[in-house]
Simulated scan of single mutants.
Amino acid sequence: MQAADVCTTQKAAEILGISVTSVQQLVEAGVIEAWKTKGGHRRIPLAAVHAYKSNYAQHSQDARAPRPARQSGAMLPASILVIEDNPMERALYQKQITSWGLQVSLRFCENGYQALMEIARDQPDILLADIIMEGIDGYEVIRTILDDPLLADMHIAMLSSLSPEELDARGGVPQGVVFFAKPVNYDELRGYLRACCATHARRGAPA
């Protein structure tokens, strides 16, 4: 393979529009082919980078196809995706949200990489994202969503124990994103999800 046919992780990150860390995660997961030189530097075939970019775009486009708002006269529930790497917190979210009687479907991801793949497969109506995670963190997932106009209808909330100063150092809370400090006030979260579900119902109501 000629030098022109391969690239560094930095170049792959530029092509894909993600961080170098994210590229490394994809390589380690075996999603993108790569190898290391004798000097320990990763080299990635450009064909593998472009194939991943093409496949991801196709999956995303398929997932974003308009879903019917009603089936047999019934409103489809709002879909919630929760990104949380702590299993105890995932269990707590499951218990709390399912106890509120909301018309929602609920699913979980343990990290940002899984979340991006899940969003590409089936775009959620509501995203609840932890921030501090290994590899692709919540900030990167949210930035990816906000940079894509096809995902503009998604409700997004960040849930984190970061202090205001730590949030500011990372760029603050993006416009249009709701922030919940941990430990989460579940009464506030319930109110937020109820409002999101009401918006979902209005969008799906027949004209």
Rank of each mutant, 00 (worst) to 15 (best):
T8C: 13
T8R: 03
T8H: 05
T9Y: 00
T9N: 00
Q10F: 12
Q10E: 13
Q10K: 10
K11P: 01
K11S: 04
K11A: 10
K11N: 06
A12M: 12
A12K: 06
A12I: 08
A13K: 02
A13V: 03
A13P: 10
E14I: 10
I15C: 03
I15T: 06
I15V: 09
I15E: 07
L16T: 05
L16H: 02
G17S: 10
I18F: 00
I18V: 12
V20L: 11
V20Q: 14
V20S: 12
V20Y: 15
V20A: 14
T21C: 15
T21Q: 14
T21A: 15
T21L: 15
T21E: 14
S22R: 01
S22K: 03
Q24I: 08
L26D: 10
L26C: 04
L26M: 11
V27T: 09
V27Q: 05
V27R: 06
V27H: 09
E28K: 15
A29L: 02
G30M: 04
V31W: 01
V31R: 04
I32A: 12
I32P: 10
A34P: 09
W35M: 06
W35Y: 10
W35D: 07
K36F: 14
K36N: 11
T37P: 00
T37R: 01
T37M: 01
T37V: 10
K38N: 14
G39A: 11
G39W: 04
G39R: 14
G39H: 04
G40H: 05
H41P: 07
H41R: 08
H41A: 09
R43W: 13
I44G: 02
I44A: 01
I44Y: 05
I44P: 07
P45K: 06
L46W: 00
A47F: 00
A48P: 10
H50C: 04
H50Q: 12
H50G: 04
